[in-house]
């Protein structure tokens, strides 16, 4: 048990520290790198919880794909953060005030928290369907039965997002030469080549 506890504190500590660094790092690229580290630590926490599928999917999707594109954009943008920060400082008191209020509310909530008596019973409700030895199989079973509908709608949402991304960014530029592999393959030597007999001393015309 002690190893698990140590691992938990290690990853949780790294998670919090790197999350803090995300917002305090001066260089935006460093911020993103810390963000990636915090994603990674969160994934490790999932693995510690025994949710290995979710943890690894977090690494594959967020660390391996989303954050790469993030980093890509941040590296290309070359934002002058010092300039941006200058104006932002005047909002700090407001931000702190809002955060303090929220924190206070959460604290009050924590002190007076009591879940509904049948909460545990409710929480187990979808689990009644579960069978299968690994949590990957169980997740699959829940996702494709009980939550099949939200799952499908999530697909529609992604479709809408994809259409949106294309609509808002794709432009057809005139004068771009594109490679058409099919045309290239369809080209025959006799269509484009001609063998001419050049007489000596005359040169090609």
């Amino acid at each position: 048990m002690i190893v698990q506890a140590l691992a938990f504190y290690l990853f949780a500590g790294v998670l919090l520290a790197s999350a803090l660094m995300v917002i305090t790092a001066r260089n935006p690229v460093h911020s993103v790198l810390f963000l990636i580290l915090s994603f990674f630590s969160a994934a490790a926490l999932f693995v510690l919880l025994g949710a290995e599928f979710v943890g690894l999917i977090l690494v594959i999707v967020y660390v391996g794909a989303v954050a790469v594109l993030f980093l890509f954009v941040v590296m290309m943008l070359d934002i002058d953060f010092a300039h941006l920060r200058k104006g932002a400082m005047q909002y700090v008191p407001v931000g702190i005030a809002v955060a303090a209020v929220l924190l206070g509310e959460l604290g009050m909530l924590y002190l007076s928290w009591n879940a509904a008596p049948d909460a545990l019973l409710n929480r187990g409700a979808p689990g009644a369907l579960l069978a299968g030895p690994t949590n990957t199989e169980r997740l699959g079973q829940l996702l494709y039965t009980h939550y099949a509908f939200p799952f499908q709608v999530a697909g529609l949402i992604l479709l809408a997002a994809m259409i949106g991304a294309i609509v808002l960014t794709h432009r057809t530029r005139p004068g771009v030469r594109r490679q058409s592999v099919a045309t290239q393959h369809a080209r025959q030597a006799r269509d484009v080549l001609e063998i001419r007999k050049v007489e000596t001393g005359k040169g090609a015309v």
């Binding site: 790198l33 990636i36 290995e52 690894l56 660390v63 391996g64 794909a65 980093l71």
Partner: peptide, 21 residues
């Protein structure tokens, strides 16, 4: 581990960071 192939996939997808960094 149960999700060995995912682990491999995750590790190989992180390799890109070495290059970008």
């Amino acid at each position: 581990i149960n999700v060995g192939i995912l682990y491999l996939f995750a590790v190989s997808s992180m390799g890109v960071y070495g290059v970008i960094m």
